[in-house]
């Protein structure tokens, strides 16, 4: 073909300059480019007329549509809020039991709960509320502060060891210096025996552990070690553990103490949201079992 010929396609003139073997054709700007310029500039002109665009000395051109992004977003938020108000007001007024009993409202809980829980709670309590080391499960029967809806709602409102003025306080103090390491090991073995774990400790040692427990621990965890929901002290006779039930974990708990931190949600989630969550936790529990 004509590849060897110089510029076989256009036959256009070069500009007459050459740089290190490179030349340029003097081809006219294709007409499509001018059209393209026209269209994009028209778009810009129209946008400038319609929307806020050019600054002046004392302000800027507002545009004939009179759109302002701030006002617009506020209106959209208000509209959305108004659309949700009917059912949210009903949820805010109802008890958690009534919400769960009402098919309409419990459908809303099923729709709204997952994203609410996923965005606010899952990072600590797990995607299904199953908990993890340091964070209690919300779907078992072991409760620090009680599992009835009122107690859960209160926990959500004020948090645990949080910055809310009414916050719940829960402190497992450090027994470093109060008990010797050996005593700690002894009472730890006793604690393990309570939930039926095989500890390998002889009965004398367990009895010794029980005495230590009565003297040091029962005030919070109760004589039978079944916990105290007024103090957020967990039941030690079941096999649910926040920090772990093996020797090392229990030893560390007693030696160093524990103080879990659960944020307060009043001010961040309104009453309806907190009720939805309290109801949703129950749903999650139903799914887990």
């Amino acid at each position: 073909m004509s590849v060897k010929k110089r510029d076989p396609l256009t036959g256009h003139q070069t500009t007459g300059h050459e740089w290190n073997g490179i030349t340029e054709l003097n081809t006219r700007v294709p007409r499509v480019i001018w059209w393209f310029i026209l269209v994009t500039h028209l778009y810009a002109l129209i946008a400038w007329v319609l929307l806020p665009a050019w600054p002046g000395i004392t302000g800027y051109t507002k545009g004939i549509l009179g759109i302002d992004q701030q006002e617009r977003v506020e209106r959209q938020v208000a509209d959305l809020r108004a659309a949700r108000a009917p059912w949210r007001d009903r949820i805010a007024a109802a008890t958690v039991e009534n919400i769960r009993a009402d098919p309409d409202l419990s459908a809303k809980v099923a729709e709204t709960g997952p994203a609410l829980f996923g965005d606010n709670c899952a990072a600590c309590h797990g995607a299904q509320g199953q908990g993890g080391p340091g964070y209690p499960s919300l779907v078992d029967d072991a409760w620090l502060w009680g599992g009835d809806a009122e107690a859960v709602l209160e926990t959500l409102r004020v948090g645990i060891n949080a910055d809310h003025p009414d916050t719940r306080f829960a402190q497992m103090l450090s027994f470093d210096g109060i008990l010797s390491r050996d005593e700690i090991r002894t009472v730890a073995a006793y604690v393990q025996s309570l939930s039926g774990m095989e500890t390998g400790a002889d009965p004398d040692r367990l009895a010794e552990g029980q005495v230590l427990f009565m003297d040091n621990c029962a005030s919070c965890h109760g004589d039978a070690a079944t916990g105290n929901t007024d103090l957020g002290a967990p039941n030690l006779t079941d096999d649910h553990w926040i920090y772990g039930g093996d020797d090392a974990a229990i030893f560390t708990t007693i030696l160093r103490g524990r103080e879990g931190w659960m944020p307060a949600w009043e001010g961040r989630l309104d009453l309806a949201d907190r009720k939805i969550l309290a109801a949703y936790i129950q749903d999650l529990k139903g799914q887990a079992q």
Binding site: G21, I22, T23, E24, L25, T27, R28, V29
Partner: peptide
């Protein structure tokens, strides 16, 4: 253009 050994298509477009 060096590698293709072709003139630039259009100086005006440049």
């Amino acid at each position: 253009p060096k590698r293709a050994n072709r003139p630039i298509y259009s100086y005006r477009l440049s």
